[in-house]
Design a protein around this nucleic acid. Structure first.
Lengths: 226, 226
DNA sequence: AACAGCCCATGCGGATCCTGCTGGTGGAGG
DNA sequence: CCTCCACCAGCAGGATCCGCATGGGCTGTT
């Protein structure tokens, strides 16, 4: 598990970090709220262990609130010397997932960390892909744009799914042949062009902002703008 | 939120139930482990609040272990008078998600409950249906029995999905015509029989325990035994 | 200006796949 | 024993779907 520890007390930090690493986890560490928030927002962690009180204006609660506002739902465990019920309630209400009072037994911290890591959040399968106002529902095998249902053929669906899973990235023809057609050679025809064309007509016709873009000499890309 | 409370102490149970209800949740209650396990296994809850110690052999930890074994991942909060670190660690390791020691402040219990309820798990859509060793994956549109992949036609897939969504319940022909065929009248033919027959051949051939059962003059039912 | 390379759209043909009906058989229940 | 219900195999119609080829447009180069 990849864990971010934000703790200013050097002694505690070293103790916790060492223990978590010995349990087989990867630990990144920040010594103040600002750095912690930056790391948490810019990289992907499975769990955040935050000191409730931190020097320099940005404390644990502030970090959580900011992250939650950004739709970042990484589980958070608070660590704090503040033992009052009100404090605990406040930490949990702000979006924390657990609250452990110092001093604590490391075994309990570890158990609670692993309980949080057990959550399906990280392994929950994606069931809907979204690019701008275009949505693809893997479960109902349904495509909608701006709320309007669009009928799509199986092969077109696979093509669109692959494009959307790589939204914002160029997808080469070779990749499409491999992943959508299971061709491991060049069919020497314009199959791809044809299907992209059909998709375009279904998705982009009647909308001013096209989503499927051609990247000359490279492939295709799906993206909201550009 | 739909919460199951398993607690033998009448006083505590009433207190907790009342508080949770006032916070806007629906609360079912069981007074012993056996009933609690049965309820938790047979109905869908968003959260289980379990007393760690329960009379009658089936205690909280046992409940969790059993549920987890059945792939039931409903969040669990333990409530207990046992305050030792070892007890807490044991509860969490068994698959619990939080552990609160009695006596506790109700505000904290509520905050912890709601923290657990915030998880995406409760609203995560079902992507796999399972009956005995038969599995149906809605995402990949794949059927497997005992690990072996089984090819299924679209209509057969819809039929099987509908049966599995009502596993253990009789599904009438009328219901099937409505939900699987979108027929709102009686076609006067044995379409259903034919498709059920085909499904049977694919699913049950080569296995000693059939899963699809005929209920004479009623309909069909999919179930592990009986 | 002409050409080459790349990309786009449409129509068509074929093939597979799928589905629903028929009709005869088996078995359960009365 | 009889009747009704359910099962299964085969069949054929149909529809969907897919890929190819063609002709046209655009871009950038010579």
């Amino acid at each position: 598990m990849r864990i971010l520890l934000v703790e200013d007390d050097v002694e505690v930090a070293r103790f916790v970090k060492k223990g978590l690493q010995e349990a087989g986890h990867t630990v990144e560490q920040a010594g103040n709220g600002r750095d912690g928030l930056f790391l948490a927002a810019s990289e992907a962690f499975d769990l955040l262990v935050l000191d409730r009180m931190l020097p320099g204006g940005v404390d644990g609660v502030r970090i959580v609130e900011t992250l939650r506002q950004q739709d970042n739902r990484t589980p958070v465990l608070f660590l704090s010397a503040l033992s009052g019920v009100d404090e605990r309630v406040r930490g949990l209400k702000a979006g924390g997932d657990d609250y452990l009072v110092k001093p604590f037994a490391f075994a309990e911290l570890l158990a609670r960390c692993e309980a949080l890591g057990r959550r399906p959040s990280s392994e929950a399968p994606v069931t809907r892909l979204k690019v701008a106002d275009l949505e693809l529902d893997l479960l109902s095998r349904t495509v909608t744009r701006a709320g309007r249902k669009i009928d799509v053929q199986p092969r077109e669906f696979r093509l669109l799914e692959h494009l959307m899973r790589h939204a914002g990235q160029v997808v080469t023809r070779t990749m499409l042949l491999e992943k959508v057609w299971d061709y491991h050679f060049d069919p020497q025809t314009n199959v791809i062009d044809v299907h992209v064309s059909r998709l375009r007509q279904k998705l982009d016709r009647g909308f001013d902002k096209p989503l499927i873009h051609t990247v000359r000499n490279a492939g295709y890309m799906i993206r909201a703008e550009g």
